[in-house]
Design a protein around this nucleic acid. Structure first.
Lengths: 214, 214
DNA sequence: GAGTACTACTTGACATTGTCAAGAGGAAGG
DNA sequence: CCTTCCTCTTGACAATGTCAAGTAGTACTC
């Protein structure tokens, strides 16, 4: 069960991180144990400490990775060819929800002040700031605000709240039982996105921000 | 330091619960320890086990209490005399945010599937269902939907997402540093509420749901 | 009024955890 | 060959969650 040479350098760090992320995905951040992570990564119980200062160091690394990926996701919106012409905000909402679904492990850590380590790990904090900047840029691009006014900030926070609330409620909220199948859940999320995006269009039109064709 | 007789019956349960809640408020749910809770409550390390099956039992009790209080808060909206005539949704948003701010300990537990114990503790689950029902009722009352259509459900989920996202982002999110003082944060939250409520009004008017005076 | 049952805890024990300290083996450079 | 890193491993310790067993009081029965 030895690894091949080219896998070895710095590989344990990745192994540890992935083990941690998959543990968080399946059991929640609560029950992430250093020793279990080490066991899954196939290393001694102290090996993770070589790459991360302590348990919170792992969480911080996951936060950092997560915010970097989120910033990337924001940058992709309307930059690639898949511009959704039905609504300026819909693509943003969809991107956020997709990110949450595809990075559950990261998502569960990033937005919890008690474990994200943003306050104690500056490099993770910086990634979070970047992501926020990209959010503002995205809002400016897709809705048409001028990006650095108070109104634009408020608008961005409103959009972020809407998307974030939807993601957390459906990921970890008390709704699974209310919804039936996974497919039905998906449909319900889409319906909420549609409605929210429509409201954004109405608001934007009233503020004279976007072309009337929306 | 003995308690007086009338304080004694069932009092330890309350003491334990309050100790747990205050610990969660200050340090997050992550670092809630049974023994620390017992220590703060001034009892032996096993006393909590007399009232709660295990650690998750405490979390479940907190969830239950929280959802009951949330349902109560929903019921109060526009039932008391403080009807906010500027917008039908504003009072609801404000109530949700107030609940989150005044019950941080509860709030941090209720919406985390891994620790809320909703799936394993039926009595807590029932309280969560009740709260959701009250949310639907509140939306029907304040916005004017007919309460049991698909559209009403979608509308309610959208409102809940918006309020919940705002609450979680400002309570535990990566925003504290972006905002300046606590007062400034408060102002920002109010601005977002105002904007969101305005959008709800636009949407409701378009759907012909509420009197035009809004 | 002795015995029994029950409530509300306490004391003791054990495996598991996070983390500190001290190594151990190999590569790289002199 | 010796030293110095780098990448881990082994060992130890206090603290934690929780099981098992005990104990003081109260209530109720006969």
């Amino acid at each position: 069960m030895k690894t091949t040479p080219q896998e070895q350098h710095g590989d344990v760090r990745r192994l540890v991180l992935d083990a941690a992320i998959s543990l968080i995905e399946s059991d929640g951040a609560e029950s992430l144990s250093m020793r279990e992570v080490a066991r899954r990564a196939g290393v001694s119980h102290q090996a993770p400490y070589h790459y991360f200062k302590d348990r919170s160091g792992i969480f911080a690394a996951i936060s950092q990775e997560g915010f970097a990926a989120l910033a990337h996701a924001f940058r992709q919106v309307q930059t690639d060819g898949t511009l959704d012409t039905t609504s300026p905000a819909k693509a943003g909402f969809a991107a956020y929800l997709r990110f949450a679904r595809e990075h559950v492990g990261h998502f569960r850590v990033m937005f919890r002040a008690d474990i994200s380590g943003l306050s104690s790990h500056p490099e993770a904090h910086e990634c979070a700031e970047d992501a926020f900047t990209e959010l503002l840029n995205m809002v400016a691009r897709t809705v048409g605000h001028s990006a650095d006014t108070q109104d634009a900030l408020t608008f961005a926070l409103m959009l972020w709240s809407q998307a974030h609330g939807l993601a957390t409620l459906f990921l970890d909220g008390p709704l699974e039982s209310r919804m039936g199948s996974r497919l039905e859940t998906e449909k319900q999320v889409d319906a909420v996105i549609e409605l929210a995006a429509h409201m954004v269009s109405l608001e934007a039109r009233e503020q004279g921000l976007i072309p009337a064709q929306y």
